[in-house]
């Protein structure tokens, strides 16, 4: 793909698949096969990741895992700094999130502000028993006291670099790339 020419691939398609499988196994192990798990992806790419992890987890646990999406636009702390944005879908599985183990899924963990907004959004929807965080890439540079429970790849970056996650569902192929911002 030409628009990724000046980017350096850090995860190949097979690496992405392995990372997601490992996350599914870690979730199974850490939650001790709990049957109250709900996966919520943060749009846009978090939703596709949540669906893939849910599918793998369903194979491990041999029962369907509720999966949905959680839009955090209305809870962003930078809402007033940019033009009003279109909302993205929020779909909470039929069983709700009360007393469930909710695992938030996103593609990249950076400042932590998205996750902060997601926690606020969750609080308005219900009261989970526990909330955990799974990300494909943790690139560091946190601005809030937030950490991920499940990480596909820890990727030390400088603030000048940009991280791009591509997924088959959105971009035609899987991969994680690092480039110089503005390059």
């Amino acid at each position: 793909m030409s628009d990724t020419a000046d980017l350096r691939a850090v995860l190949e398609p097979a690496d992405v698949a392995r990372a997601l499988s490992r996350i599914a196994h870690e979730i199974d192990e850490r939650t001790k096969g709990a049957d109250d798990i709900v996966l919520l992806g943060i749009p846009t790419r978090g939703v596709a990741l949540a669906q893939r992890v849910a599918q793998r987890l369903a194979e491990i646990q041999a029962h369907a895992i509720p999966v949905g999406s959680l839009d955090i636009t209305m809870y962003r702390d930078d809402l007033r700094l940019k033009k009003a944005r279109a909302l993205l879908p929020t779909e909470i599985p039929a069983g709700g999130i009360d007393d469930k183990t909710v695992i938030l899924v996103d593609d990249v963990l950076f400042s932590g502000r998205t996750v902060r907004a997601a926690l606020d959004a969750l609080g308005d929807i219900g009261r989970p028993r526990m909330v955990q965080l799974a990300v494909l890439v943790d690139r560091g540079h946190r601005e809030l006291p937030i950490r991920a429970d499940y990480v596909g790849k820890n990727l030390p970056t400088s603030l000048r670099e940009s991280v791009r996650v591509q997924l088959i569902e959105h971009d035609g192929e899987d991969g994680v790339y690092v480039g110089t911002a503005g390059a």
């Binding site: 209305m74 809402l79 007033r80 940019k82 033009k83 009003a84 944005r85 279109a86």
Partner: peptide, 12 residues
């Protein structure tokens, strides 16, 4: 109201 007031400028 969200689209007109929510951001730094109108989303419409």
């Amino acid at each position: 109201m969200y689209l007109l007031l929510g951001g730094a400028e109108s989303g419409i």
